[in-house]
Nucleic acid binder design. Sequence first.
DNA 1: TGGCATTTACATTCATGTATGTATGCGTGT
DNA 2: ACACGCATACATACATGAATGTAAATGCCA
Lengths: 205, 205
Amino acid sequence: MPRRTKAEAEATREALLDAAEDVFLEKGVSRTSLEHIARHAGMTRGAVYWHFKNKADLFHAMLDRVKMPLQQIIDDITAEQQPLGPLDTLRLATLHAFEMLERPRSCRVHTILMHRCEFISDINPVELQNRLAADCREVVRRCFQQAHDEGLLIDEIAPDVATLMLHSMIGGLVHDWLRTPDSFSLRESGGEAIDSLFYLITRRA
Amino acid sequence: MPRRTKAEAEATREALLDAAEDVFLEKGVSRTSLEHIARHAGMTRGAVYWHFKNKADLFHAMLDRVKMPLQQIIDDITAEQQPLGPLDTLRLATLHAFEMLERPRSCRVHTILMHRCEFISDINPVELQNRLAADCREVVRRCFQQAHDEGLLIDEIAPDVATLMLHSMIGGLVHDWLRTPDSFSLRESGGEAIDSLFYLITRRA
DNA sequence: TGGCATTTACATTCATGTATGTATGCGTGT
DNA sequence: ACACGCATACATACATGAATGTAAATGCCA
C-alpha cells in the first residue's frame, strides 16, 4: 500500500529505527542486513532506502534519537550556574547520566554502540566519541581543579588523578552494566560506588 | 610454493595469526576477509583454510596466544600464598595485569576484542568473558572481605562497594587506554589511579 | 612416491544499490 | 466540487560484487 499520509510516513520511519535497535541489539550491526530490519518492521528494503541513504545513514539517525551520557555530563556541569559546589555538581551530573542511561531506548542504543558494533568503519563516529571523551575529561578536570583551589579536595589526591579515577570509574560502570544489565543496578550500586569515591576524596573537618 | 618443512609450516601459521592481528586491528573483524589476511601474510586463502577451519577458528587461535587480563589477576591472587596482605595482593595483581597488557601483542589482541569486533556472534566468546568477569569479581570480593575482617579496610567502605569500585576502575582504565593508547600511560597514570584508590580505602593508624 | 602444504578454480550465497513499477494523498485550477 | 497532475511512499525486480567453502591441481620434502 503506497503513499500514506505524511504522519504515517514519519511513523514508519520511527518504526524502522525501532526495528534497527532491536535487530542490531540481537545480531550485531555488521551481521544485520537492511532486509532484516525492514522485515522486522513489517516492510521491505524499499522503505529503508526511501527514508535513509544507506545503513550508515540509518545508524546515525538511530544515534540521533538519544543523547550521549558524556554529553549529558558536560551539559549538566556547564549549564548550571553552580548553585552547588564543584564536587556535588560533578557527582549529581554523573548520577543524572546514569538515570538517563537506564531509559530503555538509551540503554539499547548505547549497548549497540559499546557491544554490538565495531569501531573503525564508516558507520561509527569514533572520532566524535574520542573528542567527546576528551571534552568531558577537560570539563571534569576543571571542576576538580576548582574544588582543589577551594580546598574541598583532600591534599593526597591531585585534580588530574581524581579526574582519571572518576572518568574511568564511570566508563567501567557503564561498560559493565551495559554488558550485563541484570547483574547490578546502575543507579543503585553504580551510584553507591560514585558516592563512595566522592566521599573518599572530599576533605572533611 | 608448496610444502616447506614442518617448522616452516608452523611459521606460516604464526605469520597468518600475526597478519590477522594487524588487519583486524586496522579494519575491524567483520570487515576483513580471509583474503585480506592471507594477502597481508603473503599467501592465499588456501593457506588459511589449511591451518584453520574458518574465520572464527582463526580468531580463537589468535586469542589463545594471549592471556586475559582478568585471568591474570585471578591467577596472581589465587596462586600466591599471600606473602602480602590482601590489599597489596590485589593492588600488585592489578598493576601486573597492566604491565602484561602493555606488551604489543596483548595490546593489539585486546584492542581487537574490545574495540574492533562485535559481541553476539559465533566469533566472540561472550559467555566466557562474562564468566571470567564474574569469577574475577568473586575473587576480588573475597580479598576485600578478608581485608575487612582483618581490619585493613576503612569502616566507611563495604567490601562489595570496594569490589565494584576497583573492578569498574580497572575496566574503565583498560577500555580507555586501549581506545587511545597515546593519551596516557596505563602503567603510570593508570597505576597512580589504582594506587590512589587503595590509599583511600586503607585504614591508617 | 605418497602424503603434506599451498595455490588455483569454481559454485554458491548474500547483501547492496539502483532502477522501475504503482497506487495514493494532495494541491491546483476552474 | 471535481477532475487533473504530480510528487510521495513505498514494493518489486535486477545487476553487481564480494566473501565463503570446497574441490581439484600442483609441487616439494621425507
